[in-house]
Nucleic acid binder design. Structure first.
Lengths: 224, 224
DNA sequence: TAGATTGTTAATCGATTAACAATC
DNA sequence: TAGATTGTTAATCGATTAACAATC
């Protein structure tokens, strides 16, 4: 659902952008924000590539999918490129988020409250445990699951974050889908099934940890 | 650093396994564990593919990099395959982990204490804040950063987890490297530079959230 | 045996990288 | 102008998928 330009500059919708490209955009944005904070005005694909361990040609190509953001002989204007990437990722509208699971991890995420992402806002927190309901996390009151649909509608919530234990995650996902969210970020260590029109991303750190383990050097050389 | 077999069955070290393959192994393992809990004995690549939204041929190929784990006409024995994947990911040894950052997220991870991963154990927790030092998280006492190197040596800690604020993350990474960890799992929303012999994985949920935002359907069609 | 399913080779598809004209 | 760096095309590389013989 990206918009690109034909040679003539006319806009052309729907030119399939690969997932790999989309996943790099937040990385670019993160580093560009750092550069901006350091008041760096301009950056080349060379510089970016060096810092991010990516091929400069790849970076140029990634950005070129969405428009001509750079200047030949000069590089990219940091502020301008930040603005453009924010547009691509639709970060100029504030995205409303519901968080389900007021446990430790849920608390952590609320505290973050996307402090660096002014563009995403947790609007409501839910939990199934009666003991949790009514308690406060920052300025939010933990709500029972029955209120989910109503609050999703009311606050125009488009994303759900799942921070419940693994056994409940699928059930919660179903309820989020039912309530009408368009995307889910799942922290529980299980594979969830959702209708294909709902986008699901996994933030399951156990996966990261396990794949990390693979890359550790052998110590006690063992055979399979 | 994978071991494979030549046709004749002799072992052959070093046949480059792609990162994509390694990242799928934990997913297989996760689902196989579920099947095992449900006392399912056998599973086909067909079944797995359906459930995990992956191509069955891909799954067979992934597994075949490491050995012949299946039986033609039958499929894979769930228990046996779990065991094999655990070996590949080196989960049969208990991996010792240090966690730096006793904030909310650090607490959450300690509570997890890898409950489902008996194979990883957080051996020590560190923080820079004097107010945090000496406090307890479960059975662990929060230690000052000065103790890092000593405890890494003492407990044979091979992995460091970073859950400190973004601005401190690079500094902490440096200290972890200095202390001798082989891998780092970074939760802070920054790009870290580490020597190439140290493996670094990112569990930065803001990235996941931003790329998720990209895939939400447009509402107020805006042009770039 | 017939049906199912693996492991593996070959074909396809897609992503990364190199190279270079355009231009600041 | 000379040097730098983009946007983009072409070349390369690698990953996914299809197909099928082997075999349970």
């Amino acid at each position: 659902m990206a918009r690109c330009r034909t040679k003539g500059g006319k806009r052309m919708k729907q030119m399939k952008i690969s997932e790999a490209v989309v996943r790099r955009l937040p990385i670019y944005l993160q580093f560009l924000n750092e550069l901006n904070k350091r008041e760096v005005q301009t950056v080349s694909s060379q510089d970016l590539g060096q810092r991010l361990d990516l091929n400069p040609a790849q970076i140029r190509k990634d950005l070129a999918y969405f428009g001509e953001f750079g200047r030949k002989g000069i590089g990219y204007d940091v502020v301008y490129l930040i603005e453009k990437i924010r547009q691509i990722l639709k970060l100029n509208q504030t995205l409303h988020v519901a968080l389900v699971g007021a446990g430790n991890l849920g608390h952590a995420l609320c505290n973050y409250n996307m402090y660096m992402n002014d563009n995403m806002k947790i609007m409501a927190v839910f939990d199934a445990l009666p003991s949790k309901i009514g308690t406060h996390i920052n300025s939010l009151t933990v709500r029972p699951m029955q209120d989910l649909k109503q609050l999703v509608d009311e606050h125009n919530i488009r994303i759900g974050i799942i921070t419940v234990p693994a056994v409940e995650a699928q059930n919660v996902a179903n309820q989020l889908v039912e309530a009408g969210v368009e995307g889910i970020l799942n922290f529980a260590p299980v594979i969830l099934k959702v209708p294909e029109e709902v986008r699901i991303h996994h933030a399951d750190f156990t996966r990261e940890l396990l794949s990390l383990a693979y890359y550790l050097d052998y110590e006690g050389e063992e055979s399979l």
